[in-house]
Amino acid sequence: MITPKRIYLAFLALVTLWCAGILLAPLLKSAGLSLSSFLYSFYSSVCHQVDGRSIHVAGHKLGVCARCASLYLGFLVALLIYPFLRSLRAQQVPGRHWFLVGVAPMIIDVLLNFTGLHASTIATRTASGFIFGSFLPFYLLPPLLEAVAQVIGRLSSRGDLTYARKAEQV
């Protein structure tokens, strides 16, 4: 039986796994394990992994840069507290203006750095990434829970139909 809670827990497990991989990459590298190369290679498709823009753990950079790492961490933290703030059955998402509020610090940080008015630092990248990441679950989780429930509902009803047809043939 599929419930929003189960879908939420499965999604939470996947996001935790994704974030764990980011942290595991430097830890495995410091332990001399080759799996770290795969993890760095895996995350290289989603991040530049520039050393100077990354947070270091155990003497090695994380799997992604500081901005991306804090964005994923913000996403995970917001996902964890989501059920305490909103019902998992609620389908409404916040207004678009709140999305702009969430993304604004990151855009301002990038633009200030690009124009040379203020150089972005690890602190500004981390803070702006975390803020944006913590806004995202409120837009993504309601349609995701609804979509997975719809897909599973359709697949199971198709399965029931196929079973019924086979039973008729027998």
Binding site: P143, L144, E146, A147, Q150, V151
Partner: peptide, 8 residues
Amino acid sequence: LESSDALL
């Protein structure tokens, strides 16, 4: 339009 459309 449904959210499952977005997923697929």
